[in-house]
């Protein structure tokens, strides 16, 4: 019954958010919102730019790349010198070079993969000045790229797709900061810790033991962690701890925040291209896949863990090992599905303790490219890449030059879309192959056999998709995994962003072809089905052999597939 009411509340709140936040974001990016103009204008003056100075896709991408380089170095330097910086009551030393390298890339790419325990590694200054800053910046970059790509569909014969500096400034100040501030207050009000006073020690009067509890500026970081589909928690145990996720309400709000912007961006898309039905078609494709995966994972976790059942223990309350009893099996499975399908990776449970089927649900959600609904911005620009492939296939079927929103999809667009859709699977599979073929790679997983393989596959799937969630059974803080993981995150992020911007630029230059009777419609059920088919077929064909070696074998070993 709890799950039923959670779903009803999610549908209502996300429905309203889709409509109104989606519409607001369109107004923000089209320059019709000015209530923070007094902040915007000085920033543009400082950067030597203005909303009128639009950029070609190459200049837009160049600005984004330079900005990313500065962000990388900024984060790396803070982590390396944190021992000499203020706000370090625990006197934590500098973070090691390899871990700083991995963490800088991780937060830049919106992955938030953490090869460290936050409370024992990062000072307050690092958490606030480096990591939380990136938790605002990286989703802003993702959303800006998605908007720039959408402008490619919305404009006619335009050499430009917007201004990168203006887009991220507007995204930060009009969208991310105000929403994160409001939800930060709610999280702190519910009991999430927010202090700069350092750790607290308590003596247990029953056995005389002294406990040291990690604290910090957690509550406000929690809001942007979920809203920006970041996932990097202040504490090692992430949203499973009451200090980050204190109540059922914060657990619900976490799920809501994860899904809010990625879903709402489809409305923004529809409004920008002049047809809400076009956005609704993408929303329908996202929702149908999300609902299917959520049902599969919830069903798996509501059942028994086959390994536990094989040991002769028969639970009647689902697979509760590794889960918070505060949240239960089904809400935890819903949180995990939302987290893995939105490029977030936050966790309110141990994913390593999920049933093989449940783990498969999480893995597969990432393997289909994180488009259901995907990360902030990345979900939209990635599903648009799949949509281009879908109309290309549709065009081949009916023997016409494919069109999407009146723009002819020709060889260049298909090449760019092909590259954008294949970068992630190639990265994940090649890096997993290298890891299982080397001693350093095989030293990572804590388990042998198919579960150990799943741990490696999950790690690179998570990093290659900029998700950041971890199975939990992998020792990732080694030079091999720090460096290989960082490479996977960089390729997985920019190997898709740059083709997406190129697509936006190429499409913006084109004129619109008048609609005719033979035009392949992209706002109906046929298109939704075709897009879902493309997403599932690309994901299935590329990853099925790897899945077969991991979770499927593991489930079969326990001789109980469902």
């Amino acid at each position: 019954m709890g799950l039923f009411f959670t779903l009803i509340a999610l549908v209502v709140t996300l429905g309203l958010t889709w409509r109104y936040l989606g519409s607001y974001m369109e107004a923000v990016f089209n320059g019709r919102v000015h209530w923070l103009g007094w902040i915007e204008r000085p920033i543009y003056r400082m950067l030597g730019t203005s909303p009128e100075q639009e950029q070609t896709w190459k200049r837009y991408a160049g600005a984004m790349i330079v900005f990313s380089f500065v962000s990388l170095v900024f984060t790396y330097v803070i982590l390396r010198i944190q021992g000499s910086l203020p706000l370090n009551p625990q006197r934590l030393p500098a973070v090691g070079p390899a871990l700083s390298f991995n963490t800088s890339v991780s937060f830049l790419t919106n992955t938030n993969w953490q090869n460290y325990g936050g409370e024992t590694t990062m000072s307050y200054f690092s958490q606030i000045g480096a990591l939380t800053v990136q938790q605002f910046v990286s989703p802003a970059v993702g959303i800006a790229v998605a908007i720039a790509m959408v402008r490619g569909f919305a404009r006619r014969k335009s050499p430009t797709i917007g201004n990168f500096w203006v887009d991220i400034t507007r995204c930060m100040f009009y969208i991310l900061l105000p929403i994160a501030f409001i939800f930060g207050i709610i999280f702190v009000g519910e009991g999430a810790v927010q202090t700069l006073s350092g750790t607290a020690s308590f003596t247990d009067v029953l056995n005389g033991a002294t406990q040291t509890l990690a604290r910090g500026p957690i509550g406000f970081m929690e809001a942007i962690k979920q809203l920006g589909t970041n996932g990097g928690g202040f504490l090692d145990q992430n949203s499973a701890t009451p200090f980050e996720n204190p109540t059922g309400l914060t657990n619900f709000l976490s799920i809501y925040l994860l899904l809010s912007i990625p879903f709402a961006l489809t409305y923004t898309f529809g409004k920008m291209v002049g047809s809400i039905k076009q956005g609704a078609a993408l929303l329908a494709a996202m929702l149908l896949i999300f609902a299917t995966f959520a049902a599969f994972t919830i069903n798996a976790e509501h059942g028994q863990n086959p390994a536990v059942a094989a040991a002769g223990i028969h639970s009647t309350v689902g697979n509760t090992e590794g889960k918070e009893t505060r949240f239960g099996d089904t809400s935890t499975a819903l949180f995990a599905t939302a987290s893995t399908q939105t490029s977030t990776g936050s966790a309110d449970a141990s994913y390593d303790s999920f049933t093989p089927d449940g783990g498969l649900g999480l893995l597969a959600g990432m393997m289909i490219g994180e488009v259901t609904p995907g990360g902030t911005g990345s979900g939209l620009y990635t599903i648009l890449i799949y949509a281009i492939i879908a109309v290309f296939i549709g065009g081949l079927m009916i023997g016409r030059t494919p069109e999407y929103l009146g723009k002819k999809i020709q060889a260049k667009e298909v090449k760019l879309a092909g590259l954008g859709s294949l970068v992630m699977p190639l990265t994940v599979l090649i890096f997993t192959g290298i890891a299982v073929s080397t001693v350093a790679g095989r030293a990572g997983p804590l388990n042998g056999g198919p579960h150990g393989f799943s741990e490696i596959l999950y790690a690179f799937t998570s990093q290659g998709n900029n998700n950041g969630s971890a199975f939990g059974g992998l020792s990732g803080n080694t030079p091999f995994y720090n460096i290989m993981g960082a490479l996977a995150m960089l390729i997985g992020r920019f190997g898709i962003i740059i083709p997406a911007l190129a697509l936006g630029g190429v499409l913006a230059e084109k004129d619109v072809v008048p609609e005719s009777l033979g035009t392949f419609r992209t706002d109906n059920g046929m298109f939704v089905g075709l897009t879902i088919g493309v997403i599932l077929i690309i994901g299935g064909l590329t990853f099925f052999p790897a899945i077969a070696l991991g979770p499927i074998v593991e489930q079969l070993v326990h001789a109980r597939f469902f």
């Binding site: 380089f69 990388l72 090691g96």
Partner: peptide, 30 residues
């Protein structure tokens, strides 16, 4: 030792940035 690791990290960032700029150039010619 640590200095060398820091130096290699910055070199890695520069290399990644140049690779991205290179990808922009390549995709422009596709």
């Amino acid at each position: 030792m640590e200095f060398m690791a820091d130096f290699l990290s910055i070199v890695g960032f520069v290399a990644a940035t140049l690779a991205m700029l290179g990808l922009v150039k390549v995709l422009d010619k596709v």
